[in-house]
Design a protein around this nucleic acid. Structure first.
Length: 678
RNA sequence: GCCCGGGUGGCGAAAUCGGCAGACGCAACGGACUUAAAAUCCGUUUUUCCGCAAGGAGAGUGCGGGUUCAAUUCCCGCCCCGGGCACCA
């Protein structure tokens, strides 16, 4: 990555958590605080750090999402889209009135540039060094400091006049240059043109400091706003006015032509800006992969040669928590010879963000013992893409975006051929404990261990699965676990007292037996297999799977006395197989009781007979004006007119429509009859 | 502010393509078994009204409208909760 310029070092303002005593990535900052310590505000420190150039892939990460649609939750894709934050616009040079030094601004609305009434610089903008006097520099610095420990809430817009003017390249107008605390150095060019008439923030700022407001866009069906007197900015697209030769053009077209004009005349160009920034990966921690470079006084930063990879962490180190890498205190690790010139060099002592490891672990899993390279590309070609990945939403802009980045990067260096790591993504809901989301990184995990200890692992597993569908967020509460324990007891008791003599293998009871109970029970059995098979293949709603097994067992209890000995083994066998994914231990017990060989989880999933899963007759609700008035029982496939006749003949229906005129009868075969009367 | 989810009994939830709202479980209550308790088994359990009862009538899926023979499901407006992004020019 270093050779390709995708890994680089720069001195930059980085996020620092004092509790972790390390640097954090932007993605690891949550509402201005550390993702692992929500009460610890992140400080900004200027440090020399390693970055990975994820921005080089911003476009691909965004564009390739179209291939993920359908397979990934929309929510995750939206979060990634927002995080990447692509916005198309233009860069334009305003020039300093006195020295002609260009000040480049980024805007998505070049079409409004005739309405620009000032240029605003970020307080950290490099030009401030030359533009501002000492007092001004002090004010700018105060703004930067105020932002470093800003409240998560809004800060008021503040600014001051720099004492200088800039020239608008389109109309040659002189506009004042201000410094504003709401202008971010890290986005765009760190400078903007304020068009208060057409931007809410600029409007607020310019009103506050009494800088002019000049409307230049009118609604397509409407008049240009009149100033003074504007109460709010008009931020929609419209028709350009008061803008010289561009007047009369629709916003969209004006933007296109005006950026082309800037490019032709050498003072700007169409440009795209991303919100996502490069990934800061240096950590001052022991636990992490060493950054494999050597600092040589004469050669500079030299990568560790491939045949010496991976760099292994030294053991027996002292964790200081001093905010510097503990590796610095290990001379054997630090002092090495430069691979290029052979002179004395020092190993990099920062380690990498652990998200580096999770970005490609699943590739390594395909070839875990390879000692010469990360993995054999042929093996990856065989296994990838991952068909189905499961994880929490909390990783949407962390792990899941980093992994996509790594995949594209490794594709470009020829290690793999796939574009994306994961074809289908499922995000399980978060578990909330006492109002806060549980997570490994926060250490507030309340386990199901005690449940397993009290009721056994089967009950614990069933309980968790039964609580809600897996994509849903759930509040962790243990009420109701006994119900699942009772249920497993019910199943086990039914099975053990009904196994009988197992010498006759009982597969393939395919004809409907004659007794009512047998028919009822076998039908329910096949319906249950059908339902669960369907849920496994599509929805993964295990709560309803378990509910349907409970229904089956309820029927078994109700009919127990009348079930023939011949069908009992088949029922118990399939019951064990159905239950195996949810309660493997109890299922195994039942399997053994049946006298079957081997582990139950090695068996095939039970099949169902669609014919046997059909209800014997249809129960058709009969509505009158949409209200349920009766039910009729008919064979499946009964013709419409017959259904209508039977429905109208029903006693309760008769009394409900007595004295009224039947206007219309809606008949949905095998489903419902609705009689419309007046 | 913008973008996603979500709102259904006392509770967790179900209703998969517009067709019987509340499956299944918890909690509660009643019964059987028991000297007794636990365990187990059986039953009741959205709500209001009428009825001694069998039974009957109405309301009901956050709120207000709409489409439809029919809406938890589709459309419009609003309220509330959760999540994400947030001076991103």
């Amino acid at each position: 990555m270093m050779e390709r310029g995708l890994a680089y070092r720069k001195k930059a303002l980085v996020n620092w958590c004092s509790k972790c005593a390390t640097v954090l990535a932007n993605e690891q900052v949550v509402e201005g605080c550390c993702w692992r310590h929500e009460d610890t505000p992140v400080e900004q420190r200027a440090l020399e750090q390693w970055f990975l150039k994820i921005t080089a892939y911003a476009d691909q990460l965004l564009d390739d999402m179209k291939d993920l649609e359908g397979g990934w939750p929309e929510r995750v894709l939206t979060m990634q889209r927002n995080w990447i934050g692509r916005s198309a616009g233009a860069e334009v040079d305003f020039r300093l009135a006195d020295t002609s030094t260009p000040i480049r601004v980024f805007t998505t609305r070049v079409d409004t540039i005739y309405g620009a009434t000032c240029v605003i610089l970020a307080p950290e903008h490099p030009l401030n060094e030359t533009l501002l006097d000492d007092a001004g520099k002090a004010r700018a610095k105060a703004m930067v400091d105020a932002r470093a420990n800003r409240d998560p809430g809004d800060i008021l817009k503040e600014g001051f006049f720099s004492g200088h003017y800039a020239i608008n390249p389109y109309n040659g107008e002189r506009v004042p240059i201000w410094v504003g605390n709401f202008v971010l150095m890290g986005y765009g060019t760190g400078a903007l043109m304020a068009v208060p008439a057409h931007d809410e923030r600029d409007f607020e700022f310019c009103r506050k400091y009494d800088i002019g407001v000049r409307p230049v866009i009118r609604p397509v069906e409407g008049e240009l706003a009149v100033e003074p007197g504007m109460q709010v900015s008009y931020t929609e697209d419209g028709v350009v006015e008061e803008s010289g030769e561009w007047s009369g053009l629709p916003s969209e077209e004006a933007r296109r032509r005006m950026s082309a004009y800037a490019e032709q005349n050498g003072f700007g160009k169409a440009a795209i800006t991303f919100r996502i920034k490069d990934w800061g990966i240096s950590r001052q921690r022991y636990w992490g992969t060493p950054i494999p470079v050597i600092h040589c006084p004469s050669c500079g930063v030299v990568p560790v040669p491939e045949d010496q990879l991976p760099v292994i962490l030294p053991e027996r180190i002292e964790i200081t928590g001093a905010g510097r890498s503990p590796l610095e205190n290990v001379p054997d690790f630090v002092n090495v010879n430069c691979p290029r010139c052979g002179g004395a060099g020092k190993r990099e002592t920062d380690t990498m963000d652990t998200f580096i490891d999770s970005s490609w672990y699943f590739y390594r899993y395909c070839d875990p013992r390879n000692s010469t390279m990360p993995f054999d590309p042929a093996k990856i070609a065989y296994w990838f893409e991952i068909d189905q990945y499961i994880g929490g939403v909390e990783h949407a802009i962390l792990h899941l975006i980093y992994s996509r980045f790594f995949t594209k990067m490794m594709r470009d260096i020829g290690l793999i051929r796939n574009n994306e790591p994961v074809r289908r993504m499922f995000t399980q809901g978060m578990v909330i404990a006492e109002g806060a989301k549980m997570s490994k990184s926060k250490g507030n995990v309340v386990g199901a261990d005690w449940l397993a200890e009290k009721f056994g692992a089967d009950t614990a597993r069933m309980f968790v699965l039964f609580a809600a569908p897996p994509e849903k967020e759930v509040d962790w509460r243990a009420e109701g676990a006994e119900g699942l324990y009772r249920f497993l007891g019910r199943v086990y008791r039914f099975a053990t007292r009904n196994v009988g003599q197992p010498e006759r293998p009982a597969t393939g009871v395919t004809d409907l037996p004659s007794t009512t109970s047998d028919r009822k029970v076998l039908r329910k059995l096949h319906q249950t297999v059908k339902k669960i098979t369907g849920d496994f293949e599509t929805r993964w709603h295990f709560n309803t799977c378990i509910a349907s097994i409970m229904e089956l067992v309820n029927v078994l209890y109700a009919e127990e006395a009348n079930i023939s000995a011949a069908v009992k083994p088949e029922i118990i066998e399939k019951l064990a197989l159905l239950l195996a994914p949810f309660a493997p231990y109890v299922s195994q017990e039942i399997w053994d009781e049946l006298g079957r060989e081997g582990p139950v989880f090695r068996q095939c999933w039970p099949s169902f007979d669609p014919e046997l899963a059909k209800d014997e007759e249809a129960e058709i609700p009969v509505q009158v004006n949409g209200k349920l008035r009766g039910r009729i029982h008919v064979p499946f496939g009964t013709a419409k007119d017959e259904l209508e006749r039977r429905a109208l003949a029903d006693e309760k229906v008769q009394s409900a429509i007595a004295g009224k005129q039947v206007k219309k009868v809606i008949v949905i075969p095998d489903k419902l009859v609705n009689i419309v009367v007046q």
